Amino acid sequence: MNSYLALLEISNEFDVSVARAASRRENLNDRFQRNAFKLSERMFIKRYRLSKALARALIEEVRPFMPPTLRSDALDVETKVLVALSSYAVGDYQTEIGDIRRHCIAQSSVSKAMKQVTNALNKPGILNKYVSFPFKLQERQQIKRAFYRRFKMPGCLACIDGTHVAIVCPHEHEERFYNRKGYHSLNVQIVCDANLNILNVDSSYPGSTHDSVIWANHPLNPYLERLHTVSGEDLYLLGDSGYPLRPIMMTPVSDSEPDTPEDNYQNMHLTARNTVERCIGVLKGRFRCLLGDRKLHYSPTVAAKITNACCVLHNIANRHNLPFQPLTSAEAEAERRRQEGASGSMPGTGGGASVLSQLELGSARR
């Protein structure tokens, strides 16, 4: 009888403990979300990079791809998404994020939430929905018309460039990720349209890989070649001199004489290709976890997924014309130094000092 009463008492204490843990979890999640959504719209966008409506829509979109909550004190989906958005935006690593510190969310919980949301945003149903290359002729014609209206370059479909995303030294094959600027990184290929929407991102290559090698092995390369040679479609990308000149890849002309057709082409090319520099500037201004001096503290595979996730969120924000916080002059200068020559581009053609003016305050806007 005494044993039965002892077991009953233990069971009751366990039930009370579970109830208290559930209550703590509910209070934490409710408090975090309530404080987030009571912010003004401007402050909410500044902190999470999306509007309240877009954040709520994103929560519902990723919910089917999030793992079930198993622990009684775990964060719910809403809180995980907000924590991840804040982490992407600040990039100053979890302990410095105001909401997270104020609500006593453990760093391990933040890291787990960020990985789970990142995996959800990399699901094909989400990634391919928001970062989508125009495979239909009508879509390509629309994008080419936008380039022509802005830059008077007929047939231009997109601009392409590589940007380095710094990572911690990986445990395996670290030499592959060590770039020419002396730090470990991913070399991320970005293809964008005239409106700074990212049409394609490839985050799978280590930092030692040259831009031209990534493009040479990318499936878009033979696809565009077939459109040009077989279908006879007039289209090309704009790239810097790190890429080989091809019918589908227009690069700058070196040493053009003033007031010549070559000089006119050079000026038009530089002006139009600057679109991808601005796109990268806006991407990293919105999501500072991608800045070189922040450094992603994850494996290359997870870092690549985080980069893809930020591109998804960039397109969502960009297509809704949401404001962003441009890089300061100091941030832009630091980023320029870390990017210039990291892939071995020819001096002055891979961005150079001209990138600084595009990354600085206000100049990366559309």
Rank of each mutant, 00 (worst) to 15 (best):
H228Q: 09
V253R: 09
F44I: 07
N12G: 02
A57T: 11
C289P: 04
L5W: 08
K284G: 13
P222E: 05
A166G: 06
Q189G: 02
L137D: 11
P323T: 12
R31P: 00
A89Q: 03
I10H: 13
Q141D: 14
K284L: 14
A89N: 03
T307G: 01
G352R: 01
G239E: 04
P323Y: 09
Q107A: 01
E9G: 00
A57S: 15
G125C: 06
A57W: 05
T328S: 15
D255Y: 14
R101P: 00
E61S: 10
G125Y: 09
A106Y: 00
R246N: 15
R56T: 10
F44V: 06
R150C: 08
E61W: 03
R278Y: 13
P244V: 10
N195Q: 12
R273C: 01
D255H: 14
V191Q: 09
P219D: 05
Y48R: 04
L186M: 10
H103R: 02
N221W: 13
A89W: 04
L245H: 10
F135Y: 15
G239Y: 07
V188Q: 03
S329E: 13
S343N: 10
P222S: 08
I97N: 00
V191A: 05
N264V: 14
G162Q: 04
T301Y: 09
M250D: 04
E225V: 14
L359K: 03
F133W: 10
R63L: 06
A53Q: 13
R338I: 12
S363K: 06
A22E: 15
I160F: 07
P247G: 12
S357M: 07
A21Y: 02
C279K: 06
F147C: 07
P244Y: 07
R145I: 10
E335F: 07
T229M: 03
A36M: 10
V302I: 15
S132E: 06
Y148W: 13
T260L: 12
A330K: 09
L82M: 14
L121V: 05
E175G: 02
H103Y: 12
L290W: 08
T275N: 08
L5I: 13
M250V: 13
P134N: 08
R25K: 13
C104D: 14
P300E: 01
R337N: 14
C279N: 07
E96N: 11
N315H: 04
T209M: 09
Q138D: 15
H269Y: 12
Y243N: 05
F65N: 03
Q325K: 11
M250K: 06
D234V: 11
R34L: 06
N2I: 14
L82E: 02
N27V: 04
G351S: 08
A303C: 09
V110N: 00
L82F: 12
R34C: 04
S109W: 00
N308Q: 15
L361I: 15
R336Q: 12
C310S: 04
Y88T: 01
V16D: 07
L82W: 10
Y236F: 15
L238P: 01
T349V: 06
S241I: 11
S212F: 07
E257L: 15
G239T: 09
W215G: 02
R42C: 11
C289N: 04
V165T: 14
L313P: 04
P247S: 09
Q94A: 06
F37S: 05
M153V: 15
P134T: 06
Q189K: 09
